[in-house]
């Protein structure tokens, strides 16, 4: 099987891009691939803990936890998070916070890389 790195840039909670990125990651894992998931820009808001689930509203926190349990490395950009007042203890347990180096290194070793841009 292969390794794919998905970078989600500048998408807020409730954005179609976030739903697409998570669904693509889920599908790739189900097919036996190894997945790295990187949040940058506004996408770091997805890593924030304490999100509340409302009916008919995009709520991805549980799905992110499930992806982690399936071996997906999920990492938020340290600078982007700090710039938005999100620090290591504000983040969902299991989601790491690293500098961009982490993503570049993972992308360089991946079979496929998809940067999902923002609206």
């Amino acid at each position: 099987m292969a390794t794919i790195s998905i970078g989600l840039f500048s998408s807020l909670i409730g954005s179609m891009n976030s739903d697409f990125a998570v669904k693509l990651a889920e599908t790739a894992v189900n097919k036996g691939h190894s997945v790295n998931l990187w949040f940058s820009g506004n996408a770091v808001t997805l890593a924030r803990k304490g999100q509340k689930s409302f009916k008919d509203y995009s709520y991805l926190a549980e799905r992110l936890k499930a992806l982690q349990e399936n071996g997906v490395a999920i990492v938020a950009c340290e600078a982007c998070a700090a710039a938005r007042g999100i620090h290591k203890d504000d983040v969902i347990e299991g989601i790491a916070v690293h500098s961009m180096d982490w993503y570049v290194a993972r992308a360089a070793k991946s079979d496929r890389v998809l940067h999902i841009g923002g609206e």
């Binding site: 669904k23 599908t27 790739a28 097919k31 496929r112 940067h115 999902i116």
Partner: peptide, 19 residues
């Protein structure tokens, strides 16, 4: 489907961009 997309990505298209 999403499954097809993953297969196409892995088998047919080495480089991927998002617009």
């Amino acid at each position: 489907t999403y499954e097809d997309v993953v297969d196409l990505m892995m088998n047919d298209y080495e480089k991927l961009i998002w617009l």
